[in-house]
Amino acid sequence: MDNLTFPAHTYQQTGILATPIQWRVRGLRGATTVGQNTKEAIAAAVDELLDALETNNLLDPAEIVSVTFSATPDLDAIFPAAVARRRPGWEQVPLLDVQQMQVKGSLDHCIRVLIHLNTPLPQNALRHTYLRRAAQLRPDLALVK
């Protein structure tokens, strides 16, 4: 494979990395819950979750490979991907919505996200984000508000 050169990236510009390392595709997870099945409530929850993921990971939309959202069957007022597509810089990001598998006794009104991104950071440096009642899915990763 030919050697490629890439322009300076946000991580390099912020001084987080002193030496160049190999970039990899990593997975970034998050989840939140919605109080009611309305366009407004779903949009607010998706924006809150993506804001937290972007802030806590210095996420650059230009480095996102793809994003998959899943929603529990009780959320059908709007696609979470439609909300994400309105975000600045997210217009060209490949987005997909799927329905979360229905498991007896599982968390309801829940939106999950899996973001594949290019990053020089190791997997254990990414800050997965679980908000609202979704914090019970991964208490070890939940952000306290």
Score class of each variant (00 low, 15 high):
Gln92Arg: 11
His116Asn: 05
Ala52Ser: 14
Lys104His: 14
Cys110Arg: 05
Asp74Leu: 03
Thr38Gln: 04
Gln102Lys: 15
Thr55Met: 10
Glu48Gln: 15
Arg86Gly: 07
Trp90Gly: 01
Glu40Trp: 10
Leu95Ile: 07
Leu95Phe: 13
Glu54Asn: 06
Glu48Pro: 00
Asn56Met: 06
Gly89Arg: 00
Ile111Gly: 03
Pro80Cys: 09
Pro73Tyr: 09
Ala71Gln: 08
Trp90Ile: 02
Ala81Lys: 14
Ala41Thr: 05
Val65Glu: 11
Pro80Asp: 04
Val83Pro: 12
Val67Ser: 01
Gln102Val: 14
Arg87Ala: 04
Pro73Cys: 03
Lys39Cys: 05
Gln92Asp: 14
Thr32His: 09
Asp108Phe: 08
Ala71Tyr: 13
Leu58His: 06
Asp108Ser: 14
Ala44Phe: 00
Leu114Arg: 01
Pro94Arg: 02
Leu53Cys: 05
Ala45Ile: 03
Ala77Asn: 10
Asp51Thr: 12
Phe69Lys: 09
Leu59Asp: 01
Ile115Cys: 02
Val93Lys: 02
Leu50Asn: 14
Ile111Cys: 06
Gly35Lys: 10
Ala77Pro: 09
Val103Ala: 15
Leu49Arg: 07
Val67Arg: 00
Ala62Met: 09
Leu114Ser: 04
Ala45Trp: 02
Ala45Met: 03
His109Arg: 13
Arg86Asn: 11
Val98Asp: 11
Lys39Phe: 05
Ala41Pro: 09
Leu50Val: 12
Ile42Asp: 12
Gln102Tyr: 12
Leu58Phe: 11
Gln100Ile: 00
Pro61Gly: 01
Leu96Ser: 12
Arg86Ile: 02
Val65His: 07
Val34Cys: 07
Ile78Cys: 00
Leu96Ile: 15
Asp76Pro: 01
Leu58Lys: 10
Val83Gln: 11
Ser106Thr: 02
Leu59Val: 02
Leu49Phe: 11
Leu53Arg: 12
Val46Glu: 11
Thr68Lys: 12
Pro88Ile: 00
Gly105Pro: 01
Ile42Thr: 05
Asp97Tyr: 09
Asp97Arg: 06
Met101Leu: 13
Leu59Met: 09
Thr55His: 06
Asn37Tyr: 08
Ile111Lys: 01
His109Val: 10
Ile111Met: 01
Glu54Phe: 04
His109Trp: 13
Arg87Met: 05
Val103His: 08
Gly35Val: 04
Ser70Tyr: 09
Ala52Pro: 03
Gln102Arg: 07
Arg85Asp: 13
Gly89Leu: 03
Asp76Phe: 08
Ile42Tyr: 15
Glu54Ser: 14
Thr55Arg: 10
Thr68Phe: 06
Ala81Cys: 15
Ile42Gly: 14
Thr33Ser: 15
Met101Ser: 07
Val83Ala: 15
Gln100Phe: 01
Cys110His: 00
Ile78Pro: 00
Ala77Cys: 04
Gly89Trp: 01
Asn56Ser: 14
Leu53Ser: 09
Gln92Ala: 13
Asp74Ser: 06
Asn56Glu: 09
Glu54Thr: 13
Ala41Ser: 12
Leu53Val: 07
Leu53Lys: 11
Val67Gly: 02
Arg87His: 04
Gly89Glu: 01
Glu63Tyr: 04
Phe69Thr: 15
Gln100Cys: 03
Lys104Tyr: 09
Glu54Gly: 10
Glu63Phe: 07
Gly35Arg: 06
Val93Ile: 07
Ala81Trp: 08
Leu96Lys: 05
Gln92Val: 08
Leu114Tyr: 08
Ala44Gln: 03
